[in-house]
Design a protein around this nucleic acid. Sequence first.
DNA 1: AAATGATTCTTTATGCCGTAAAGTACGGGA
DNA 2: TCCCGTACTTTACGGCATAAAGAATCATTT
Lengths: 257, 257
Amino acid sequence: MVVYAGQGDPRRSIELLWRKSAAEHRPGPKPGLSVDAIVDAAIEVADEQGMAFSMRAVGERLGRTAMALYTYVPGKNELVDLMYDRAMAELPGSYPLDDGWRAATERWARDMWEFYSRHPWMLQVSQARPVLGPHEFASIEALAAVLVSTGLPGRDLRGIVGALTYFVRGAAQTVAEARAAGGATGEADEEWWYARSAVLVEVEPDLAKKFPMLHLLENDREPIDPELPYLENDAVENFRGGLKVLLDGVEGAVAKP
Amino acid sequence: MVVYAGQGDPRRSIELLWRKSAAEHRPGPKPGLSVDAIVDAAIEVADEQGMAFSMRAVGERLGRTAMALYTYVPGKNELVDLMYDRAMAELPGSYPLDDGWRAATERWARDMWEFYSRHPWMLQVSQARPVLGPHEFASIEALAAVLVSTGLPGRDLRGIVGALTYFVRGAAQTVAEARAAGGATGEADEEWWYARSAVLVEVEPDLAKKFPMLHLLENDREPIDPELPYLENDAVENFRGGLKVLLDGVEGAVAKP
DNA sequence: AAATGATTCTTTATGCCGTAAAGTACGGGA
DNA sequence: TCCCGTACTTTACGGCATAAAGAATCATTT
C-alpha cells in the first residue's frame, strides 16, 4: 500500500503537523491519549508490521479501539503524514563540512540508509508531494546545506538532490523489501533462489546463452560480509559502488563549471 | 499497496511466466478465457486505477466474476507477476551502440521514463526479488549490453546498473504519484500548493529564515514546458540534471580505470 | 445542587477487499 | 449413457477504514 500525502483538509493537517492545536478543553472526560502517543504507537506497529498496519492494531497497542484514534487524528492518511514527519526528527539537522562536501554527503547517505532500515515503511510514503512538516523541512535543509557548499547553482543542485534521494531510497527499498518478503514467508534468500533456479533451468535450459550480458554482470563477486544474507550483500555492494559513481559525477560538475 | 514477487509455489509461478503449461484439456466446457486475456485486462485496469485494482474489476472487464480468474491464475500476487513481465515486453530488447554507450543509456532512460508513465503501477511491484520472467530478463539484458560496452568490470557495472535503475524509478515515481494523487482528488498541483502554502506561512511565518538553504535551492527556476503542471516540470528538470551527473560519473570511471 | 452540553471512547454497521468452499452446467471419453 | 474433470457462479468469511449512534464523563451554567 502506498499512501499519498496531504489529501485531507489542508488547515487541519498542517496544524497537526506543526502541533498548533488549541490545547484548551473544558467539559468532558480528560483525554487519555494524545496525538504524540498515537503517532509513537503507530510508528512502533509500522516498524514491526510494515505500512499495512491497521488502525485496530494501533488502537490495541494503546488499549483502545480503532475508532478512539479518530478523536485525535482525521484518518489513516493524516496519521501516516504525522508518522512520517515524526520519524524524520531522528535525522541530523546538519552535517559538519570540515572534511568537505563529499564526506558530508557520504555521511548523509549512510544515515539515510540506516534510517530506512529502522523504518522501512517510510519508503512507501509517496514522494510526489511533500508532507510539509517541520522535520521534513529540516532534513532536506541538512542535505541542501551540504550541497550548497559546493558552490554549484540551484539549477544543478536540484537534479543532484533528486538523484541522491532517489538513489538512496531505491537502494534502501531493495533490502527493505527483501527483508519484508523473507520475513513474511519465513523464506531465506538462499532457499528462495534455490527453489526457483532449479525450475528455471528446467523450463528454459538455454538461459545463459539467451542472456549473455547478464552473466558478464555477475563476474568478480566478492562477499563483503558473510554474515549477511545474499541479497543484502548485493545491496550493500551496489550502494557503495553506485554512490561512488554518483559523487564522482558531482565532483566533475564542481571542478568544471 | 506494494506487491512482493514470487511468493507462491515456485513451479506453478515460473511455468506460468514462461507459458509452459500443458495445453491439453479433455472433458468439460471449453475455456472462455486465457491467462493472456486476463493479464491484458488486468493491465488495462491497473493503468486506469493503479495497483489497488481489484480482482472483481478485472473479472468484470472480462464479463466474469472475480472467482473465475482463479481457474487460470493462483492469486492476485501471481497475476501481478504476470502483468509485470507482460508489460516489460514493450521495452526494447537491445539498443544501438552506434553513438556510444552514453547516447544508448540516455535512450534507455527515456524509454523507461515513458514506460513508467504508461504503467505507473509497475513502480509498486517490489524490486527486492526478481519476477524471473522472460521479458524481465530481456529488459535487463538490454541495459547490461549497453554498459558492458564501456569495458568496465562487472563489479563496477552492478553498482551503475543499480544507480541508473533506482534513479529512473525514483524520478518516474515522483511524477506518477503526483498524477495519481492529483487524479484521485481532482486537485491540480497549483491548487494543492496554494491552499497549503497559505496555511504554512500562517502557522510558521519564519519558514524562509529557518530553512535558508532550501530557498537557495529554488533559484534560477526556468519553466521547461508551460503546458505541464508544476510538479511535472520539476520532475523533468530533475530527471535531466540528475541523469547528466550520473552519466558524468560513469564517464569518469570509463576514462580512468 | 442540579441541569447542560461538549468531549472521550465504545458499539454497531456499511461497503470494500482477497479468496475458501460448495454448487451448477458443460462436454469428451468410457 | 454414464462418469467425472473442467469452467464458472454463488455464497460466505475474516479483515480493512470509517460513518453513525450511543454511553460515560465532567467543567460550566443555572
